[in-house]
Design a protein around this nucleic acid. Sequence first.
DNA 1: CGACTCTTTGAATTTTGTCAAACTGAGTGG
DNA 2: CCACTCAGTTTGACAAAATTCAAAGAGTCG
Lengths: 254, 254
Amino acid sequence: MHASFHPQASFDPDYNPMIRKLESIFTLTDDERRALETLPMQLAVLRDHQDIVREGDRPSRSCLILGGFTATYKITAGGKRQIVAFGIPGDIPDLQSLHLKVLDVSIGTLTQCRLGFITHDDLRDLCTRFPRIAAAFWRETLIEGAIFREWVINIGRREAYSRMAHVLCEFLVRLRAVGLVEGHACDLPITQVEFADALGITPVHINRVFQQMRADGLIELKGERLNIPDWDRLKHVGEFDSTYLHLEIDQAVA
Amino acid sequence: MHASFHPQASFDPDYNPMIRKLESIFTLTDDERRALETLPMQLAVLRDHQDIVREGDRPSRSCLILGGFTATYKITAGGKRQIVAFGIPGDIPDLQSLHLKVLDVSIGTLTQCRLGFITHDDLRDLCTRFPRIAAAFWRETLIEGAIFREWVINIGRREAYSRMAHVLCEFLVRLRAVGLVEGHACDLPITQVEFADALGITPVHINRVFQQMRADGLIELKGERLNIPDWDRLKHVGEFDSTYLHLEIDQAVA
DNA sequence: CGACTCTTTGAATTTTGTCAAACTGAGTGG
DNA sequence: CCACTCAGTTTGACAAAATTCAAAGAGTCG
């Protein structure tokens, strides 16, 4: 079972995408499940474009994204912003701070977000008691690393057009894994300026690329709604191969 | 064999940079030390420019770099190569394969390398018995991730000149942490073509950048020997701040 | 209707890429 | 010891991709 449309998932306050994600990797024991369900979590809702944590912070907790999208970014000395990762529901974008005291990036919301803050003490305790969960968390950060590598390749070696195609493919596949894609369409609440900051290009150029992709029938983008009429062609243009996302379930469309 | 201010370190067959690295983070207990010292490790020496593992492999062991330098890379569909990381002594460039079955990158030697292969079974056993070592390994992979993020920023948002300055700074600081820098000089057994593949630029352009940097007195580069006459200026040009490397010891020169 | 953010457009400029050839220095073998 | 090779570096002229600057349009919200 994969990737179906679960609108309720986004609204049910008890729905925990972290548990769902772990279950997709291995079957939880009753003890593990109970520990996860009772894991103390401080809920918060943030407006769009708010910082969650900032470079230089020494956080004592990490945040699980329950709903909404985040961006992990850094501002260069020259004042330019580079987004290095997008966070989607189920992600813990600052899990790294569990082992690295000082945060080397900032994380902010792109849309309104429902977040669950979990203290490092509780996370450490969980990892000590349940090594399989610890391994799964470690694995998550390794996949995050694989995505960073792919971004280096994307930005370093592909021109703007296929670079954009590649992130769109990645975004769609990741969203599908958490059930946020309907058919070949999904919400895309990311502005052209934000894409520019993520792809290392100029907003002006992003716009030109989008124009071209629309003209080529590669994407249908209106407002915050994205539709992919020809997935195989988009994959081909973006040279996209989902292996690096290390999804357990082989998605028919990935 | 070059590349070392501590010749004994490179030649002593018992010298293990992994133990040294762990000791720089916390004091090992006798049990931990013994386990590390007796960790079965298959030694190998590889010529320069040999693949150690390839994309798509499903390795059952990881390799510790005892001496020499490696490059982690991927070839795009268009046949271009992007290097996403340099491996230096003390690194385990494919530690990720402990938790991610299929390798999503290739790793090859840049120079002749002395490698120590450790089976995943032995590593898993070590991690289970010594949670602090497991945490330290996890931490290493998180720092690796931080370096990837920095590369995204470097390639995405800096022009060739400061981009090069930045990698040189990073390389020097990392080398210094393992005792491979003398004063402000180190071996730099990386060709211009390889730098091009790492920085996402053309070899021709790398050359122009080097020319300019030499003319500006920013670097002294002759053969495989690099000297930095003015560290502060190089750092400034590369907008380099070593925080993301998460070194425990604050290096005077970092 | 402003006020606002986000998108779109055009023209001139800069950075970087491409291609092709020459140069350099360290081996190698006659 | 001198060609010869070979990998790596350097150069120049030209082309392409992307940036910059500046301004105009579109959509939404109070």
